[in-house]
Amino acid sequence: MFELAIVDLNVKLGENRIACGLSLEVEPGEVVSILGPSGCGKSTLLKVLTGEVPAQSGNVLFRGQQLIQSDVVFALMPQRDALMPWRSILDNAILGLEVNGVTRRAARSRVLPIIQEFGLEGFEHHYPDQISGGMRQRAALLRTIAVESPIILLDEPFGALDALTRIRMQQWFERRWMKQSWTAVLITHDVREAVTLSDRVYVLSRRPTKVTREIKIALPRPRTDNPVSAQAREYETEILDILLN
């Protein structure tokens, strides 16, 4: 059974048709990337998954069950880190738990043990403006992971970082993923990032968007430790071709 299945989804925002007959599936423990021309509705698709935007028709199924009827929430990691400048890193990380009624003290003791896996040990009590962009992004990811949601939704998570920091974050993300096997939906416009991080890539069309192509990335991991391989380049070329034509 698929962890997440979107079946024949139609979304309208006002007069604009955003998605038209969009279908895709995500298997457990899989990183699935969604690539598409800018403004094609990738972010709106995430909002459908978080329940912020209603679907006109079609189904969103989580483990075979209607998402709307189940009380499961998918943890979102937004494009910009959206950390609260008035909260310490630790207190930012527990935000999702706190929203769900966990007391601050309990939430802190749940998050503290994993803070070191995110390279944030020693910075728990720092504030967002005291740490680097990469650390802020890891803190934002920690905040998303901390709610222990079955699927994490990453909305261009490394897009705001400089090129070098982005590569380091991708390396770090791949290593963490190889240990933990998060199920993740990754929205990106970076073809290389999609090829590097995902098991499968969905390429979306312009608005109203639907899936134009599904590409399985059959490359061995870890992929980020080595220079980009010839096969990876082939995938990149193939995807760019679809996107540009």
């Binding site: 929430v73 935000l95 929203v99 769900n100």
Partner: peptide, 24 residues
């Protein structure tokens, strides 16, 4: 706005968003 979306994705109520994000 991103912070508000994030809180909503965590299932925050309007009131929680008001106190945790808007007031500060």
């Amino acid at each position: 706005r991103d912070l508000a979306s994030l809180l909503r994705s965590f299932g925050a109520t309007r009131w929680q968003i008001f106190w945790m994000a808007r007031v500060p």
